[in-house]
Simulated assay, not measured.
Amino acid sequence: MRSLRTLSATGLVAAVVLTGSAATAGDTEPFAYKRGPVSVTQHGVEDRGGVLVRDITYTGRAGEPVRAYLVEPARRGHYPAVLYLHWFEPPNPTSSRLEFLDEAVERARQGTVALLPDLTFPWSVDVVGDRRDVANVVAQTVRLRVGLDLLTTRPGVDRSRVAVVGHDYGGMYGLLLASADRERISAVVAMNVDATFSNWFATFFLGLGGDATIAYEKLFEPVDPIRFVTQRRGVPVLFQYAEPDFFVPDSTRRTLVSLAERPKDYRLYPDAGHELDATARADRAAWLDDRLNP
């Protein structure tokens, strides 16, 4: 991915303040939070042929700043919106807000606003093997809910047409949002997701086994995606999986999809790899078009 070429920069400008409602009615625990002002600082903007790619930082109430891209059509309109959540694949540069940038620009040319935040857990915050990991999953989810506050209050965004697209860990967070924010989310795409956070953390980060793994798994039960796929209450989901996928066993994939309430779509991509492929991207675009542009 090319880096942004700054056409105009605001530097340390006075923050734009977007105000949400005072409280979140019908919140899903443990991700409850109180909405408040969202401060946005723009660092630069690039015009990509009628699409504005804004390099921003946003901050919610008592929260940490989140670096993100905000991608918008340059022309005024009444647009659907997508929150894109990237995968974990360091040191690949697309293990960041860059992963979906080209996809977001392409959709913006057709009339869509997108927010692409940098995720931090487990990208830049270490997995330590205790309750702090669960707290970090909760904190990351709340920061993404603040991102939805920003996106749904953006001028020109149709609040009735908001989707989440997530890959790998990003897709797992997307499934949590589809339950916690089901009143604001119209559709969710989950790409090569695991059913539980503890599985990848225990296996690839901590090297746990036996009783230690079982105890660690129990810590995450209140926040695992497999719990929340049954609580979307009508939010449609598209599951996209490579077959085979080194990181997601067939049994895990089948269990998660079978437990997910309808409406749901389930598509497999032979030999596409964990990153998936152009066919998956085209399917994702068409599926989103059907739900965001009826």
Score class of each variant (00 low, 15 high):
A178K: 08
R281W: 09
P270F: 13
Y241H: 09
V142D: 01
V113H: 03
A282C: 01
R107M: 10
P117R: 13
E29Q: 14
D277M: 06
V16D: 12
L83W: 06
K218Q: 14
H43A: 14
V71L: 08
L115W: 07
G20A: 11
G77V: 00
P91T: 12
Q231T: 11
T153H: 15
L238P: 06
T203R: 15
V235A: 05
V16I: 13
D265Q: 11
A280W: 04
V248W: 04
A32C: 11
S95I: 05
F100C: 08
E89W: 07
G77D: 00
T28A: 14
E72N: 02
D149W: 01
A114G: 12
L116F: 02
V16W: 02
D211K: 12
A114I: 04
V257N: 05
G129T: 08
R254S: 14
G273R: 09
E275F: 02
T255V: 09
L85A: 01
Y266T: 06
L208Q: 06
G50T: 09
A195N: 07
V40N: 04
A68G: 04
N92C: 05
V66W: 00
S186I: 05
G174L: 04
R184D: 06
P65D: 03
V40S: 06
V146R: 13
T57H: 09
P80W: 00
R254H: 13
V138C: 07
P91F: 01
P37T: 08
A282S: 05
A62Y: 12
Q110V: 13
L144G: 07
S3N: 13
G20P: 02
L7T: 10
T255G: 08
T152V: 14
